[in-house]
Computed example of a mutant assay.
Amino acid sequence: MSILVTGASGHLGRHVVDSLLARGVAPADIVAGVFTAEKGAPLRELGVTVVPLDVNDPATVTAALAGVSRVLLISGPDVANRVDGHRTVIEAAAAAGIELLA
Protein backbone atom coordinates (compact mmCIF):
# COMPACT_ATOMS: atom_id res chain seq x y z
CA MET A 1 0.00 0.00 0.00
CA SER A 2 1.39 3.38 -0.95
CA ILE A 3 -0.12 6.66 0.18
CA LEU A 4 0.11 9.98 -1.63
CA VAL A 5 0.00 12.96 0.71
CA THR A 6 -0.74 16.18 -1.15
CA GLY A 7 0.71 19.37 0.30
CA ALA A 8 3.21 17.24 2.19
CA SER A 9 5.73 20.03 2.75
CA GLY A 10 3.16 22.38 4.26
CA HIS A 11 2.38 22.71 7.95
CA LEU A 12 -0.49 20.20 8.11
CA GLY A 13 0.91 17.95 5.37
CA ARG A 14 4.21 17.55 7.20
CA HIS A 15 2.35 16.62 10.39
CA VAL A 16 0.39 14.01 8.43
CA VAL A 17 3.60 12.49 7.05
CA ASP A 18 5.16 12.46 10.52
CA SER A 19 2.02 10.83 11.93
CA LEU A 20 2.06 8.12 9.25
CA LEU A 21 5.69 7.37 10.07
CA ALA A 22 4.96 7.30 13.81
CA ARG A 23 2.15 4.80 13.17
CA GLY A 24 4.57 2.46 11.47
CA VAL A 25 3.97 3.23 7.81
CA ALA A 26 7.26 2.59 6.02
CA PRO A 27 8.85 5.68 4.46
CA ALA A 28 8.98 3.83 1.13
CA ASP A 29 5.17 3.58 1.24
CA ILE A 30 4.69 7.34 1.48
CA VAL A 31 4.67 9.58 -1.57
CA ALA A 32 4.95 13.24 -0.64
CA GLY A 33 3.45 15.60 -3.19
CA VAL A 34 5.15 18.98 -2.93
CA PHE A 35 4.76 22.23 -4.84
CA THR A 36 8.36 23.33 -4.31
CA ALA A 37 11.10 20.71 -4.69
CA GLU A 38 13.40 22.36 -2.13
CA LYS A 39 10.76 22.03 0.58
CA GLY A 40 10.64 18.30 -0.05
CA ALA A 41 14.29 17.78 0.90
CA PRO A 42 13.63 17.07 4.61
CA LEU A 43 11.04 14.46 3.65
CA ARG A 44 13.43 12.87 1.17
CA GLU A 45 16.01 12.61 3.99
CA LEU A 46 13.47 10.50 5.92
CA GLY A 47 13.27 8.05 3.02
CA VAL A 48 9.94 9.33 1.74
CA THR A 49 9.46 9.53 -2.03
CA VAL A 50 9.02 13.17 -3.00
CA VAL A 51 7.24 14.13 -6.23
CA PRO A 52 6.25 17.46 -7.74
CA LEU A 53 2.53 18.09 -7.38
CA ASP A 54 0.58 21.20 -8.27
CA VAL A 55 -3.15 20.60 -7.88
CA ASN A 56 -3.73 23.18 -10.61
CA ASP A 57 -1.62 21.17 -13.07
CA PRO A 58 -3.37 17.88 -13.90
CA ALA A 59 -0.21 16.41 -15.46
CA THR A 60 1.67 16.62 -12.14
CA VAL A 61 -1.29 15.12 -10.30
CA THR A 62 -1.53 12.19 -12.71
CA ALA A 63 2.22 11.56 -12.46
CA ALA A 64 2.14 11.72 -8.64
CA LEU A 65 -0.61 9.09 -8.54
CA ALA A 66 1.45 6.46 -10.39
CA GLY A 67 1.54 3.32 -8.25
CA VAL A 68 -0.43 4.88 -5.40
CA SER A 69 -3.25 3.02 -3.66
CA ARG A 70 -4.53 5.78 -1.34
CA VAL A 71 -4.62 9.56 -1.30
CA LEU A 72 -4.63 11.93 1.64
CA LEU A 73 -5.78 15.21 0.13
CA ILE A 74 -4.40 18.05 2.22
CA SER A 75 -5.53 21.54 1.27
CA GLY A 76 -2.91 24.10 0.43
CA PRO A 77 -2.97 27.84 1.13
CA ASP A 78 -4.43 28.77 -2.29
CA VAL A 79 -8.01 29.42 -1.14
CA ALA A 80 -9.08 30.96 -4.46
CA ASN A 81 -8.39 27.74 -6.38
CA ARG A 82 -9.05 25.20 -3.63
CA VAL A 83 -12.25 23.70 -5.06
CA ASP A 84 -10.79 23.33 -8.56
CA GLY A 85 -7.57 21.85 -7.16
CA HIS A 86 -9.45 19.33 -5.06
CA ARG A 87 -11.58 18.39 -8.04
CA THR A 88 -8.44 17.85 -10.12
CA VAL A 89 -6.99 15.44 -7.53
CA ILE A 90 -10.26 13.59 -6.98
CA GLU A 91 -10.95 13.14 -10.69
CA ALA A 92 -7.38 12.02 -11.39
CA ALA A 93 -7.52 9.53 -8.50
CA ALA A 94 -10.80 8.12 -9.79
CA ALA A 95 -9.34 7.84 -13.30
CA ALA A 96 -6.32 6.01 -11.84
CA GLY A 97 -8.64 3.48 -10.19
CA ILE A 98 -7.99 4.61 -6.63
CA GLU A 99 -11.11 3.68 -4.73
CA LEU A 100 -10.30 5.06 -1.31
CA LEU A 101 -9.55 8.69 -0.66
CA ALA A 102 -8.62 8.63 3.02
Rank of each mutant, 00 (worst) to 15 (best):
V51E: 06
G33F: 01
L43R: 10
G47C: 00
L20M: 02
S19M: 02
A80D: 03
P52G: 15
R14D: 12
D57C: 08
L20I: 01
A59L: 10
E99A: 05
A63V: 09
G13A: 00
L53Y: 10
A80L: 12
V17E: 03
N81V: 15
L100H: 14
A28P: 02
V5Y: 11
E99R: 13
T49R: 07
V51K: 13
L4Y: 07
A28T: 00
L4D: 04
T36N: 03
E45C: 03
S75N: 12
T49M: 05
R82N: 10
A64P: 11
P27L: 00
D29A: 04
A64S: 09
V83A: 15
L73T: 06
R14I: 02
V34H: 09
S2M: 10
A37V: 02
E38H: 08
R87S: 11
G7R: 06
I98C: 03
V50L: 03
L65W: 13
D84C: 12
E99G: 14
A92H: 08
N56C: 05
A102S: 02
D29E: 05
G10W: 09
A80P: 07
S69D: 10
I74D: 04
S9A: 13
T60N: 12
V89P: 06
R23G: 00
A94V: 14
L101G: 08
A92S: 07
V5R: 03
T36S: 03
I90Q: 14
R14Q: 06
A32H: 07
E45N: 08
A41Y: 10
G10V: 09
T88V: 04
A37H: 05
D84F: 14
T6E: 15
A94Y: 15
D29M: 00
G13Q: 04
E45S: 07
E91R: 15
L21K: 11
L46I: 01
L65T: 04
A95D: 03
D29P: 10
A59Y: 14
G76M: 05
L72N: 14
A66L: 11
T6R: 08
A41W: 04
G47E: 00
A95V: 15
A28F: 05
G13W: 13
L43E: 11
V83Q: 15
